[in-house]
Every structure is written in structure tokens, then in C-alpha cells.
Design a protein around this nucleic acid. Structure first.
Lengths: 331, 331
DNA sequence: AGAATTAATGGTATCGTTCACGGGAGTGAT
DNA sequence: ATCACTCCCGTGAACGATACCATTAATTCT
């Protein structure tokens, strides 16, 4: 049914396969007349062009691979939307793979993408060491969501990341400015690639203000983790604010705290991170640090296409996107 | 760098390309000795197998296409996770495409997937008429998220859908049972493929109870739409409950109502739909109808693989997944 | 008019695999 | 010693497209 090939069309139109190819690709070296004839025959036969074969012949792909830890996280979902837009504009397709926070899955995912000879990769990495091995595939790659560690500069690939140091700083400073003193951080800390900058900034600001940092460590960044910690938190009364790694955790925390009769923000103020679409619809609406997620996706994709379309040599860039403190009702 | 082919390995190992292929695919027709020799050479050369070429040669793909309207919607995100699991177990990859509610994008998306010769499709359709044209590609296809309309049975493809008729019925009955009388429905209605069953059930139950149905029509199914309607709603005091098409709308509505000083559930009760992961963490926690989203994804994928692996003939099945009313705090 | 250019097409190799054959070497049976 | 059979491996043809080079016919130039 869909097994129609150029040859079939060629036979029926009494021309060579070559001419058919030219006609279908709208190349100028075919007469208008035969072009039209071929096109109608193609339509009649129900021809669908075979991008696999073309990919093999041209040695290039119109697909980019995108690797995230979990597409259910609205942060990634929105970034993907950004990538989607610029890819769609270029007529490229997206191979989406979730790693579900497993390093081995990440490895396998990238391997698969390389095997499909994707034109390039956008990766939200789990850690930095592992990502360097992916250079072995020789694919254009943009790393997104995390800045290059000091000691690894310059990185051998482009990077797009939010300015987390500053974002976290503003958040914590805002808490202090509004009179909070016993501020906890809830999230992953130094070991985590994306957690580190926020945690470090938090510690910095706290110490500058002569305050003691305190950590509620989570094992993943879901709402459930936030909830779990909120419910299990023993010395709740010691806190008057929490800065959460992301909005999901903040939501979970908020729920737990309200269940336990803590008033937000009166007893405990709460600041999230990401500014997920949803943050403005909760009650109270979540104060949070906005990451321009769609922009991040777009920039990553744009950078990637620049590499794909030629500039292998150009030194790698690290693009830092400004964050913005969005003050709503929880702090 | 990644341009190493079977030929390169063959040359270096002094065997034929064929033998290399056999070795790398771990076929029995190669001696253990040469197999190992070839494998180490492959590793040395940094060989990465080319799945595009293989796909062309074997005439089969290890990719399925998944078409949803917006992966940012947590409903789809969770379904995709379900699909992901069974695909990953089978070593298949997913081509994810968003239609963003545009029928022409849906058409184009499917076309592209067909051009890549994916092994099969899982589609969350925008409407029913259009989906029938996709048969022309002759691909195994599972339609998910919406039941077959009465007049279109039997459908020429497998279908997996939640039992929306019953889900909506339970929700509205619960509202009535708890003393609500002026119950509004907020969502898309008959024109919408997924909206229709919920709306119809709602109307049915209302009329059975001698109540008048009332519609707050939305143009898309986002939280923002819910919010907008909540804020713009003139005769708010006429209502004592809302049954929302999905959780997102419910969230938006809830926010708007609280902003306007309406107490939930005291003044207005609220029931959502889907039971998005997030629903249990809002305050008040959302009463909603659970769709087994991951299961839905898994079933769709399983059904698809059954088709792919052989059974073209078997009559198409329509699998209906039970929903469950989850009573929390908003109703 | 002859040469040079251009337009439209065809032939053939190629991309990197897999697959259906075929064949030689070795083993065991008759 | 012949036959049958298994074990390994190579040859050559796909798969469906594109690309380079060649060819013919028509057109333009001098």
C-alpha cells in the first residue's frame, strides 16, 4: 500500500528514476510539463517519500535528539515546546527520550540517538562527567539547563542555562528583606548538577547575612518529595521560610504545611523556582523565580542549528539567560 | 569520526562485510573466535551502528510515532510515560509530535511520521473524520483517548479510551447526591471529540434529576481558560457546583473563584477530570475523576505492538478503561 | 553555418546494511 | 572412497533514494 517507490512512478511516467526524484524535490532541471505529469502520477499512486532512504543517501538527517530526565515535569515540557517551535520552522523532527534520572538510561539514550544518526543533540544532563563522553559520537551538541563548572571551562560544546546563581540569590535576599531569618533550602544540593548553583547561592547569601543555612535534602524533584518532607519535617517551628529547588517541590511542601495547620506565608514563607505555568493558579499563588523556559528551548535549538549548518570551528559559547523573581502570595 | 562502517571493520579484520554484520548482531553462523576479534576491532575503531541503513535494508523501523496535542498538558505527559515504558522494554524509540490543536499540523505530523516509515502510530486525535484519512499510509495505528462514535463502528483500527461516559456520570451524580442543584459544566462540548462524551453524560444525568444543564464553553483546555471564565463569569451566584472538563480548567477556575471570594466547596463545589498527579497537592485538594493515564499509554503501546508483530487481520478492538471518582476536598 | 551554450534527461555508482545464496573445509556414516 | 551434513564464511543483490557525469536536442552566438 505504501510501498510505492520512485521506480514505480518512473515506470509509469516513462522517465528515469532520476527525473522523478528531481521533480518531486522541485528542482529546476526538469521541464514544467513533465514535473506536473510526474506529480500527478505520484499522487495517483499514493506515493509517500521515504526519508530513511533519503537520509542514507544524503548522509544527513532532519532529526534532532532531545534528552530530558522526565517530560512530565512541566519545566521540561515547556522547554520542549520552545525547541519544538524552532525545529518545526526548519522542518526538522524531534526524537524525545526520557532518562528518568538514570545515568545508564541517559547513556543508552544518547547511543540510540547516535545510531539513528540524528543531526544534533540537546541534552539536559544529569551530571557533567558523563556528558563529556558523548563527544565520541562527533555530533553537534548543546547542553542545556546547567552551566559549565569552573574547572571544566571552556566546554567543548555550547551551553544554554538560566542564571541560577543570581536567581537563587534574589529569592533568598527577598526572604531576608521581608524579615525572614530561619530560612531552609529544600532540594538537591551539591551533588546535583542543577542543584549545586542554587544551593551555593543560598548558602552564600545566608552567610553574608549572618544566618545559618539548613537543608531539607530530597531524592528527586517531584511534588511528592516536597510533600513527603513537609509531612515528615520534625522541627517545623524552627523555620519561617523555605526556598525550594523548584515549583513542584514547593507545591508539595505547601500542601503538607497547610495540612499541618501552618499558614503560608504568615508562619512560613515559600519561594519556588521555574515559574511553571501553574504557579499563578494555586492558592496562595506561588512566589517563584522565573526561568524563561520556552526561550531557553528556542535558544538551545537555534544554537544547535548554527552548529549543524556549518560552524564547527567557532569557539563554543555559554549563553546565560536572566531569571526574574516573581513575587506573588507565598512570600 | 563516527563515519566508521562495516567495510572499515571488515578490511581491518580481513573478513567480509557480511561476517562483520553477523558478528555484531551476534548471529550463530560465526565462530566465537572471529566474533570476538571483530568486536574488539569495532570497539577500537569506535564503530556506531547505523540504524538508518539497517532500517532501509530490513524494511522495518524500531520507532513508533506518538501524536498528541500538547505535551505540556500533564495528562499527555503521563500517558507518554506509559508508552515510553513499554517501548523502552522493546528497545523501540519514540517520535513525539505535538499538534498544538491544529488540524493541519496533525495532518503534517502524521505525514512526516509516515515518511520516516515508523513502525506504527499512537494518535490522540483532534477529530474523527480526519483520522480516517490516515489509513492511507497503511500503518498500524492505535487511536487513544477517545471512543469510536456510534455511527463509525467498527473502526478500522484499535482504540483505547477511558470510560468517559461513566466517569462524567459518577462525577455529576456525586454532586447531586451531596445536595448540589445548579451545576455548571465548564469545557468543550459536542464539537470536541473528547469533550462530547463528558458533556453528554452531564446533560443526561442532569435531566434525569430534573435539573437544567448549563455550559461555560471554553476554547481550549488550559488552566488559563478556566481562570478567564472564572473571572468573567457574570451570574456566579446562580451556581453551586462546577464539573470541569479537566483538572487544568478546574485549577484555573478554583483560583478565579477564590480571588472573587467564593469559598470552595462551601459556596461552589468543584470536580475536575484526569486526576493529574498534581491534583492532590492543591489546597483544597481537587476532587476529580481518575483516568489511569499510564495504563492507558501502556495499553495503547501494547496493542500497537501486537499489530506490528503480525496480526493485521484480527478484528479491531476497542478497549475501555474504567475511571474512578476520587473524592478529595473540593466536592 | 559552425561552434558554443543551455535545458532536459538518462546511466550508474553510492549511502551502510541485511539477506538469500553458494561453496569449501571438515566430520561422520556407509 | 563416496556421500551427506554441519560449520564458517564470501558473493552479489537488494533497500529507496540522491549525486555526479554523460548524453541528446534545442537554442544562442559569432
Amino acid at each position: 500500500m505504501a510501498g510505492v517507490t520512485l521506480r514505480d512512478i518512473a515506470r509509469k511516467a516513462n522517465v528515469s528514476v532520476n527525473t522523478v526524484s528531481r521533480a518531486l524535490n522541485d528542482k529546476p532541471e526538469v521541464s514544467q510539463q513533465t514535473k506536473e505529469r510526474i506529480l500527478t502520477i505520484a499522487r495517483e499512486l499514493g506515493y509517500t517519500r521515504n526519508l530513511v532512504a533519503r537520509g542514507l543517501a544524503t548522509q544527513q538527517s532532519h532529526v534532532i535528539g532531545v534528552v530530558v530526565s522526565d517530560n512530565v515535569n512541566p519545566y521540561f515540557a515547556e522547554v520542549i515546546r520552545g525547541i519544538s517551535f524552532v525545529a518545526q520552522a526548519k522542518q526538522w523532527t524531534i526524537f524525545l527520550v526520557n532518562t528518568y534520572l538514570s545515568r545508564s538510561t541517559e547513556r543508552a539514550a544518547i547511543e540510540t540517538l547516535a545510531q539513528y544518526r540524528v543531526g544534533g543533540l540537546i541534552v539536559f544532563p544529569l551530571d557533567w562527567d558523563q556528558i563529556e563522553e558523548y563527544r565520541r559520537y562527533g555530533l553537534p551538541m548543546v547542553v542545556a539547563g546547567a552551566r559549565v563548572p569552573e574547572d571544566k571551562r571552556p566546554a567543548p560544546f555550547d551551553v544554554v542555562a538560566p542564571d541560577d546563581r543570581n536567581g537563587a540569590r534574589e529569592a533568598v535576599e527577598h526572604l531576608i528583606r521581608t524579615g525572614r531569618r530561619r530560612i531552609y533550602y529544600c532540594g538537591p544540593h551539591e551533588d546535583s548538577l542543577s542543584g549545586a548553583p542554587r544551593w551555593q547561592s543560598y548558602v552564600e547569601v545566608m552567610e553574608e547575612a549572618g544566618l545559618k543555612p539548613a537543608l531539607l535534602p530530597v531524592s528527586d524533584v517531584s511534588a511528592f518529595e516536597g510533600y513527603r518532607h513537609g509531612m515528615a519535617w520534625p522541627d517545623l517551628e524552627k523555620a519561617d521560610a523555605v526556598f525550594a529547588f523548584n515549583d513542584l517541590i514547593a507545591f508539595g511542601l505547601a500542601r503538607a504545611l497547610t495540612e499541618r495547620g501552618v499558614r503560608i506565608p504568615d508562619d512560613i514563607a515559600l519561594i519556588g523556582y521555574d515559574d511553571v505555568e501553574f504557579a499563578r493558579y494555586t492558592s496562595p499563588a506561588l512566589t517563584t523565580v522565573r526561568i524563561p523556559k520556552e526561550t531557553l528551548g528556542q535558544q538551545a535549538a537555534t544554537l544547535l542549528f548554527q552548529r549543524i549548518e556549518g560552524d564547527f570551528r567557532k569557539p563554543s559559547v555559554e549563553k546565560i539567560l536572566p531569571t526574574q523573581l516573581i513575587i506573588r502570595e507565598t512570600a
